[in-house]
Amino acid sequence: MKKLINDPADVVSEALLGMEAAHPDRLRVDHQNRIVYRKEAPRAGKVGLISGGGSGHEPMHGGFVGLGMLDAACAGEVFTSPVPDQMMAATKAVDAGAGVLHIVKNYTGDVMNFEMAAELAAADAGTEVLSVVTNDDVAVQDSLYTAGRRGVGVTVLLEKIVGAAAEEGRPLQEVADLARRVNDNGRSMGMALTSCTVPAAGKPTFELAENEMEVGIGIHGEPGRQRLPLASAKEVAAMLVDPVLGDLPYSKGDSVIAFVNGMGGTPLIELYLMYNEVHQLLDRAGITVARSLVGNYITSLEMAGCSVTLLKVDDELIRLWDAPVNTPGLRWGA
C-alpha cells in the first residue's frame, strides 16, 4: 500500500483536521463525533440538511457542506456508514425549528443507521425528521427482492438542488418532495479501470488485469456487474449512457444535467474526453444538455474510472442548480 497517510487508523480523523484547517471560513468540525458543520448552522427558519456516509468518497459529503448545500455531514470510517450517535448529534445541532432532512444513499448500512438515528432523534428531542434515499444506479437490475439500487452520482446533484431550495426557506415537506423528484429523475452507471485500497485492508479490494475493466461498479471499490476486456472511451461511453438512457427512460426533447464523474484516480483530461463522447451520444439521442458537471465529486478512493449521471430537469430544477453555492467541493455565484 502506497498512500500519503500516517497511521491507517487515523486517516479519517486526520483528514477532518485538514478540512477544518483549510476551510475555517465555511466549516467547523466536531472531531469527537466526526461531523462537518456549516459554520453558521443552525440558521433560523431553514430546514437543516444532513447527509453522511462512509469516508473515501471525497469531496462527498463533507466537501458539500456550506451555503446552498448541506448543513452537516457525518463521516464514517472508510466505506463504512457512520453510526446513529453521529447522525443524532448532527440532527439536533442543525435543527432550527424547521425540521431536518436526511439525505441517505441506498446502502444497507447507511439506511439502517439513519433509520435508527431518525427514530432516536424524534423520541429524544422531538425533532421532525424526513428522509430521502437515493437509488440511481442502473447497474443493479433485479432490485425488487434485493437491497435495491445503489445511491451514487445523483446524490451530488440532489444535495446541490435541494440545498438551494432549503436556502430559500422552503418548508420541510416541500424540500423532501423536491429531493424525491430529483432522485426519481436521475440515473447513473459507473465503471472502473482499477481497484482501490482501503487503508485498513492494506491491499486492493480486487485484482484487475491491464487489459480488463469492471462495468457496473458502485463507489466502494466493490467489483461491478461484469468484467470485460478494456475498450475505447467511445465504447465505454456507450456502455454507460445506453443503459442510463433506456432506464428512466429519457426521450428525445428532454433536457438534462449531464454529470461525468471521476472515481478519484482518473485525470480530468480523460474525464473531458469521456464527456465529449457522452455529449455526442446525447446529441444523437436528441437530448439537450442544459447544464454539465465534469470532475471528481463522488469518488472511490484512488480508483480509476468514471460514472455518468443524467438528471432530467425543468426550469425550476435548472434555476435551483444555478443558485449560489459556496462549499469546498462546489462553488459558484457566491
Binding site: 470510517e77 453510526v83 444497507t108 448500512g109 439502517m112 443507521n113 435508527m116
Partner: peptide
C-alpha cells in the same frame, strides 16, 4: 456495537 461499528453489521 450500534455506536462504534457503523455499516450494516453495527445495527444488526
Amino acid at each position: 456495537l450500534v455506536s462504534k461499528v457503523g455499516g450494516a453489521s453495527g445495527p444488526l
